[in-house]
Nucleic acid binder design. Structure first.
Length: 666
DNA sequence: GCAAGGTC
């Protein structure tokens, strides 16, 4: 009988797959680690026949890359030496029991069957497993399973069709690891050593001034928005408003041109309207409209929605989702997939929610014929399904944060399985003095998914009276109004996550950590949006010294939006306090401005370099580049930035002086 | 005293 060692990326996958293949497989404990189990059972593989199987797992990466000891001490070498200092890869201290477990199991097996997630990092983790197993037993055959979810039929299919590890993907990840280590360490030490002594010290703690290929672009987004707010100059504009009364209803017509920045032009146009006296209806339409139900839930969307509606930071959202997952209430919370597999039994999941007091009745209505297959988004990571509730849990069993996140996940899921909201849109267009104006009305006919999903708002506007084309009307009121453009607001957490996502900064699992890191490093401050007031709420830096600079926000006209006219079908997002917004500290601004002033064409604060690295990783995966070429080329490019920065370190110091040391003298 | 990526 063949002896097969299967290894998954995480315990939950080992358990699920083992149970599909082996029935209620026996679970043995592993020395020195509680959450990893070895499942033992027999299984008849298509390729290897009746076999004795041990199914275990790792917990993410097992090994770490570090510099040789001499280079780990900050005083042991120049930071610039880290570009080519020798490195080694070794088992992380806390992963020792996991590695030992694999080694001892491998010694007694003939075949290694790797079941890590089918993504780039999963491929790399698989290669680490392979390395450890082969060291213990060089004669092993090594195979890999291709699977994208843990549905029974899919898993059995994967068990019968093993493939090979993709070494190109392994190389791509290993290039990333080396670059992140070398660049992170080199720039962090250089910056810290050069600038730390200029920083005002509190409580004798010397803070690291770190650089990382993700944290810097993240900071860059915050600073960029901050500067746009600060440099904002409101601009006045003018527009024409027309009101007509019919059937006792005041109908507000908005100008098709929105607004103009030329006052004289508006005066002339307005006079033409006034002298025309009478307006004419040119177009009416009444047509069905819909508000689409949301897409299946991805990690990025969960974090955006969580920081927007649940009053949690993205880090807390992730921590909470993680806890709900390990307790078995929701599915795996790190996924890019926004489409449910056709074969998945969604009704079974809905059924379990029927007992709830809040959304139970809605779940029942879905079970009684209201069910609709969820929409399909465009993403499928082929590793995990969208986030969904797995089992029902009563609110009393959860803490505050868990309750909120669980509720959101359930409501989102039920909404996905429901129906689009249906409404009727009425549009009326008039011509007045040669200008076009229009009015828009919405009547919600069937709320459908909105009943279970309060995070979306779509409400009927005032009914419009009946108009017919050609009808003449005399406005009750027409006036020329003035407004001014209002400043953008500081970057909110959901906006930042969206920017990171769009620019490929971090992964769904790490974006919240990068945000946490730039807070931790005191590059940015977070505060609740709208809670501006208070003493120095606007102040930057941990040292209590504000920027002393203008508060760019001009009074919010609010009119800009009103004049903008044709919005999409319905009302906008729900108003809700509690969103976090980020303001850079003096240190954060100084770092970004300092690097910008060093004037290299590719500033470290821009997302460009990270994006470029992503493109090169793809090239390695597709065999168009080699790992070595990519690493060397990137090191050369960053080394040039490094040299230039150290030569012009006074530019960086000047920025620190300007913003941190003497913030009020500029 | 450095990074970012997995996961518990």
């Amino acid at each position: 009988m063949a002896r097969i060692l299967c290894v998954a990326e995480k315990p939950s996958i080992a358990k699920a797959v083992a149970n599909h293949l082996g029935g209620q497989a026996r679970a043995d404990n592993v020395r020195g680690i509680q959450w990893v189990k070895n499942y033992k059972f027999d299984y008849n593989f298509q390729s290897w026949g009746q076999s004795s199987v041990t199914f275990t797992s790792v917990a993410g990466h097992i090994q770490n890359m570090e510099f040789h000891t001499r280079y780990q001490k900050w005083t042991g070498c120049q930071p610039s030496e880290l570009f080519d200092a020798p490195t080694e890869v070794f088992v992380a201290k806390d992963k020792k029991p996991i590695a030992d477990n694999i080694a001892s199991l491998a010694a007694h097996a003939t075949i290694l069957f790797i079941w890590t997630d089918c993504d780039r990092e999963g491929e790399h983790i698989g290669s680490q497993v392979r390395e450890i197993a082969l060291k213990a037993n060089p004669n092993m055959q090594v195979w890999r399973a291709r699977f994208s979810n843990i549905e029974r039929a899919h898993i059995i299919q994967a068990a019968g069709n093993p493939i090979r590890l993709d070494d190109a993907q392994v190389s791509a990840v290993s290039a990333r690891i080396e670059l992140d280590l070398r660049l992170g360490a080199a720039f962090t030490r250089m910056q810290t050593l050069a600038l730390q002594n200029m920083m005002p010290q509190r409580d004798d703690v010397k803070k690291v001034i770190s650089y990382g290929s993700c944290q810097f672009p993240t900071l860059g987004f915050v600073v960029d928005r901050y500067l746009r707010v600060r440099n904002f100059v409101p601009e006045p504009f003018w527009y024409i408003k027309v009101v007509h009364e019919k059937d006792g209803i005041n109908v507000k017509f908005t100008w098709r041109r929105g607004h103009l920045f030329d006052r004289m032009a508006v005066i002339i146009i307005f006079e033409r309207c006034v002298s025309a006296k009478v307006a004419k209806v040119t177009k009416t339409s009444k047509k069905p409209t819909k508000k689409w139900k949301p897409l299946p839930l991805t990690t990025v969307e969960l974090q955006k929605m969580g920081s927007k509606f649940l009053r949690l930071t993205s880090q807390d959202v992730m921590k909470t989702a993680e806890a709900l997952y390990t307790k078995g209430w929701i599915s795996y919370p790190r996924t890019e997939t926004d489409q449910f597999d056709r074969g998945m039994d969604l009704r079974k999941l809905i059924e379990r929610q029927q007992q709830d007091g809040r959304w139970g009745p809605f779940a029942q209505s879905l079970m009684n014929g209201g069910f609709n297959q969820p929409r399909n988004g465009r993403n499928n990571d082929k590793a995990h399904p969208p986030i969904h509730p797995v089992n029902y849990v009563a609110p009393t069993q959860l803490n505050d944060n868990e309750r909120r996140v669980y509720e959101f996940v359930v409501r989102r899921f039920l909404a996905c399985c429901s129906e689009d909201a249906v409404g009727e849109a009425t549009d009326v267009e008039i011509e007045y003095g040669g200008e076009n104006f229009h009015a828009h009305g919405l009547t919600v006919i069937a709320r459908n998914y909105l009943d279970v999903y309060p995070y979306d708002k779509w409400e009927s506007s005032q009914n419009l009276p009946q108009y017919t084309v050609g009808e003449q009307l005399e406005p009750k009121e027409s006036s020329m109004e003035e407004g001014k453009t209002s400043a953008p607001s500081y970057l909110t957490e959901p906006e930042l996550i969206a920017l990171m996502d769009a620019n490929g900064i971090g992964t769904d699992a790490t974006m919240a950590d990068h945000i946490g890191k730039i807070k931790d490093r005191e590059y940015v401050m977070a505060r609740v949006k709208g809670a501006a007031g208070g003493n120095g709420g606007d102040s930057a830096g941990g040292n209590g010294r504000g920027r002393g600079r203008g508060r760019g926000r001009a009074g919010r006209g609010g009119r800009e939006g009103a004049a903008a006219g044709h919005g999409e079908g319905g009302a906008g997002g729900a108003a809700n306090g509690g969103v976090q917004e980020f303001i850079p500290t003096t240190l954060g601004i100084a770092l970004i401005e300092g690097y910008d002033n060093v004037g290299f064409e590719t500033s470290l604060s821009k997302p460009f370099l990270r994006k470029e690295m992503e493109v090169q990783m793809k090239a390695i995966c597709e065999g168009r580049s080699s790992r070595n070429d990519v690493v060397q080329q990137n090191l050369d490019q960053y080394r040039a930035v490094f040299i230039r920065t150290t030569q012009q370190i006074n530019v960086l110091k000047a920025a620190i002086t300007k913003y941190v040391v003497q913030p009020n003298q500029n």
